[in-house]
Simulated assay, not measured.
Amino acid sequence: MTILDWLLAPYDHFSHQVTGDPHEIGLCVTWLIEKLGVAQPTVSRHLELLRRAEFVTVHRIGRWAFFKRNEAAIAAYKEWLREHL
Rank of each mutant, 00 (worst) to 15 (best):
L32M: 06
A73M: 06
L50M: 11
T2G: 10
T57K: 08
F55D: 05
I61D: 13
W80V: 09
F66C: 10
T57C: 02
L36W: 00
I25V: 15
L27N: 01
F66Q: 05
V18E: 13
R45C: 03
W6V: 08
Q17E: 10
I74S: 10
E71D: 11
R63S: 11
F14Q: 09
W31V: 06
L49I: 05
A53L: 14
A65H: 11
M1W: 06
D12M: 09
A39R: 15
T2D: 13
G26W: 00
S15Y: 10
V43T: 12
T2V: 05
H46W: 10
V58A: 11
G62W: 01
L47Q: 12
Y77C: 13
V18F: 06
G37I: 00
P10H: 01
F66N: 08
G62P: 05
Q17R: 03
L50A: 06
I61G: 06
F14K: 11
L4V: 04
R69F: 02
N70I: 03
T57D: 09
V43S: 09
F14P: 04
N70M: 02
I74G: 04
Q17C: 06
K78T: 08
V58H: 00
K78C: 11
L36A: 14
L47E: 06
L4S: 07
I33N: 10
A53S: 07
L8F: 04
K35R: 15
D21I: 08
A39S: 13
